[in-house]
Computed example of a mutant assay.
Amino acid sequence: MAAKCNIFLIGPMGAGKSTIGRQLAQLLNMDFFDSDQEIERRTGADISWVFDLEGEKGFREREKKIINELTKKQGIVLATGGGTIKLKETRNRLSARGVVVYLKTTIKKQMIRTQHDKKRPLLQIEKFTLKTLEDLANERNPLYEEIADITIHNEDQTAKIIANQILILLKKVNFN
């Protein structure tokens, strides 16, 4: 694989993409971006509001534009939203413009990490259950795996430990 100078973190909600991304960016002295935070900053509204007003399709269009713009930068760490990989065009951009790190976690850990989170639109549905996360995993996990250059399991380790593990793995894929 050719050397790449961006790192894109993908994975389900609650996998630790933002927390680990900040740690990784700090360790590498790189700029950090979070695609969801960028959407909120640019719209002046939280993700839930965008979802409510525009639906998931409208949100994914906004997300696609932000991802396209951010992935053109050089030397960044980008934490993506859990559903970012749903659009093939976005998957292709992530794959072509940086090293893609899939933070894999269990549904049980997702439940623990997200149970009190009021900002995640897909968790706000009235009948949210464990099955909701299972359905999302069945739909999305193959897409994460499809574009991942590195897969790392994030279970019970700190963000700093995971970030250091990623650094070791990045050296194996000739990351510059």
Results as ranks from 00 to 15, higher is better:
residue 87 L to V: 01
residue 16 G to T: 12
residue 5 C to D: 15
residue 120 R to N: 11
residue 2 A to P: 13
residue 52 D to Y: 04
residue 40 E to S: 05
residue 17 K to R: 14
residue 82 G to N: 00
residue 117 D to I: 14
residue 175 F to H: 03
residue 13 M to C: 14
residue 116 H to W: 08
residue 74 Q to T: 00
residue 93 R to G: 02
residue 23 Q to D: 08
residue 19 T to P: 11
residue 35 S to K: 06
residue 166 I to L: 08
residue 15 A to V: 13
residue 105 T to F: 14
residue 149 D to H: 13
residue 77 V to Q: 00
residue 154 N to W: 07
residue 21 G to V: 07
residue 131 K to M: 08
residue 33 F to W: 05
residue 21 G to N: 05
residue 1 M to T: 12
residue 133 L to H: 09
residue 15 A to R: 08
residue 95 S to E: 13
residue 84 T to C: 06
residue 62 R to P: 05
residue 124 Q to L: 15
residue 7 I to Q: 11
residue 72 K to F: 06
residue 126 E to G: 14
residue 149 D to C: 04
residue 36 D to P: 07
residue 160 K to F: 06
residue 30 M to L: 13
residue 90 T to V: 12
residue 164 N to M: 08
residue 74 Q to V: 01
residue 34 D to F: 02
residue 146 E to W: 07
residue 72 K to I: 03
residue 154 N to A: 03
residue 13 M to R: 10
residue 166 I to M: 06
residue 88 K to H: 07
residue 51 F to H: 01
residue 9 L to H: 12
residue 129 T to L: 09
residue 112 I to S: 14
residue 55 G to V: 08
residue 82 G to I: 00
residue 158 T to V: 10
residue 143 L to V: 05
residue 153 H to A: 10
residue 7 I to N: 07
residue 145 E to Q: 15
residue 116 H to D: 14
residue 147 I to P: 02
residue 19 T to L: 15
residue 28 L to S: 12
residue 71 T to L: 03
residue 167 L to T: 05
residue 126 E to Y: 08
residue 39 I to C: 04
residue 42 R to V: 07
residue 85 I to F: 04
residue 88 K to C: 02
residue 97 R to C: 04
